[in-house]
Write a protein that binds this DNA or RNA. Sequence first.
DNA 1: CATGAATGAGGCTTCATTCAT
DNA 2: GATGAATGAAGCCTCATTCAT
Lengths: 217, 217, 217, 217
Amino acid sequence: MARRLTARGAQRRRELLDVAARMFATEGYHTTSVTAIVERLGVGKGVFYWYFDSKDELLRQILADAQHGMRLAQREAIADEHDPVRRIEQGVRASIRWLSDHRHLFAVLEFARTEERFAPLIRAGEEQAVADALPHVAAGVTAGLLRREDPVVLATAVLGVSAHLARSLVLERGEDADRVAEAAIAFCRSGFLASGGAARRAVADDLGASGTEHRRT
Amino acid sequence: MARRLTARGAQRRRELLDVAARMFATEGYHTTSVTAIVERLGVGKGVFYWYFDSKDELLRQILADAQHGMRLAQREAIADEHDPVRRIEQGVRASIRWLSDHRHLFAVLEFARTEERFAPLIRAGEEQAVADALPHVAAGVTAGLLRREDPVVLATAVLGVSAHLARSLVLERGEDADRVAEAAIAFCRSGFLASGGAARRAVADDLGASGTEHRRT
Amino acid sequence: MARRLTARGAQRRRELLDVAARMFATEGYHTTSVTAIVERLGVGKGVFYWYFDSKDELLRQILADAQHGMRLAQREAIADEHDPVRRIEQGVRASIRWLSDHRHLFAVLEFARTEERFAPLIRAGEEQAVADALPHVAAGVTAGLLRREDPVVLATAVLGVSAHLARSLVLERGEDADRVAEAAIAFCRSGFLASGGAARRAVADDLGASGTEHRRT
Amino acid sequence: MARRLTARGAQRRRELLDVAARMFATEGYHTTSVTAIVERLGVGKGVFYWYFDSKDELLRQILADAQHGMRLAQREAIADEHDPVRRIEQGVRASIRWLSDHRHLFAVLEFARTEERFAPLIRAGEEQAVADALPHVAAGVTAGLLRREDPVVLATAVLGVSAHLARSLVLERGEDADRVAEAAIAFCRSGFLASGGAARRAVADDLGASGTEHRRT
DNA sequence: CATGAATGAGGCTTCATTCAT
DNA sequence: GATGAATGAAGCCTCATTCAT
């Protein structure tokens, strides 16, 4: 493609991206036909192919935009924060808020992972996310603020908690995004063990059982 | 369906379920045609429709079997364990191991969530999983072993960490399932904060900032 | 494809090839839709794709069959003939008769030459035809029966006369194939010059002007 | 159409005709889209429909121009020649040269014959060509210079040889146009039989020999 | 039980053509 | 004169499903 677009053209393109993303999220990618998309917009089928080479390419564009948007949101969130731990926390907040605000994109991203031709894009995006978080995690570990654990594991775990709580509690159960974000942060900080005597005892058990560090090989 | 099957018939049916699940996982549901499935097995198309009413029904069956299998694995894992915390940990171990052993089913479950007609099954399954874990979590909280937090949140977070680390580290990065399970457990127990003074300080911050409890409304 | 076909299946396939060839000849390849073909046969669209991978492949099959058929006809025609000149003449007769009997295939062959993706097949077929005729022509030249001229040129010219007269006079003007065949042969044998003194004079002119032999360099 | 064109307009129109003809020749008529044509010229689609009513009309124009051009070339070639035989020969030379110089138009003419809506134009053109040659052929027959044969047959045969040798040897095998023209003329004059006693003897006997080489290098 | 064959709705895409600016 | 945008019929092909044998 790479068409030179007028202002109106760019607008149309955005409309298509948006409508399609929402329909993909609701109905599924394969279940949403190009015909359905253009009908929703009340335009001819040719319009679609004027702006996109194919349905696949449209999805790829949606994915790229989504990943870009989320990354931007995260960067903004940590821009003014210098403490590694707080940075991570801000990242979690930004992620959950973004997922809440763009739940349709979230669904699309999830679908894309299930099809071989799109999955690499998703994996690349997730690796990027881990890579983005890594320096802060590593800094935290170095500073003695974070548990001595493989930073990749920590970063991945934090992202997993964020995404999962966002989907389960916010998107599916309809809970408040901010409240869930704080819960996610609390869990990421301290896990589920109670602090104090009971927790200490449990921690001690754990130490005895398998050691503190679980290094990746 | 509910056909009376001979021994050989039951075998055929299982073959179909298995082959289909693996192909769905690799190629995607829509991308795998019924024709492709029966060709892989070297049988005619009639065979497929002898055992299943439709492709959709086949998928539903796969999903049900998968959820059933995972639940069984988890139950077995905690059968001999009476301590709430250890039960949860055993559940995490069992989940990650099962996901590692049945990675194709994992992929299929993920796809199913993205299509409106299958999503309810997945949501039901996940709610079931949370419900299964809930008593142990609640018991842990009551006993003062777990942090005073909404048990649903804790259970959901634990499941999220398990699933996400399993996919990211085991399935995608090829790490060892057992090692990842231990890392997941460590994270679930204590989060990412270091346990020394720094951690305590951080915990204090957190308490001051937003309180310990994040109740669901 | 390469499907194992039952007797009925093979029959269907032949029907499709035949109907399609006739429609292509009349309407043109691009102007004849797959839908039109199957409708003519009163079958569903799937039937077409059960027997052929694509419309292109169907055409290729038609072309291959046509070239094969024509070659067979030519071979049969010269089987009992040992004189080189007579062999060529029999070939001309067979070609014109075949083209007359399979005029629809003739038209399809002509179309195929005009599209880059099919043209190589046609060119190969024509080179084959020249190659088939070459030994007889060469033998004739060697024996002093044919004019000392590049056999490739002679063979090509003979084929050109046959095809062109068949199309112009038989197919388009509706003349009798056998009569045209004899005229073609007469022309090929002696050209257009009268054989009396006038002809000799003309031949002499020609010799003076550019020589008898036109060797290729 | 019949639009009043400015000088620049006429130029544009010619560009379109030329570019389109070349693309049709290379890719085929149906395979070359209007979009492709205007893109090649770097203009908008409106331009095309400013100069032509439709793609079909464009092709018709190309065909008419081509036929006109070839006819002109032939007329010029025989303008200064009064001998019937030489006139024919000059016509052959002019045809082959023209086909060589306008090979793309040759291809387009060939395509047009394969589609019912354009075929009449081609047939008319060919009949015209025969009609053009007819007087000279008839004169030659009357004068006893040409074999006593239906002049239509002779004219058609000559045209067939010219076109076929031009395509096979010049366009496809890349031989020199002038050399091929002389070979075509020689064939048209005397056919393939050897002249002189050898030929006569050969015809009488039934020599079935093979031997020395008349190989192309 | 099983197969080869058939069905036909519907999907994605192309493209000649038109139109507003 | 020209352009970008839009139209929508129509094309090729896929595929879940059914049926005769």
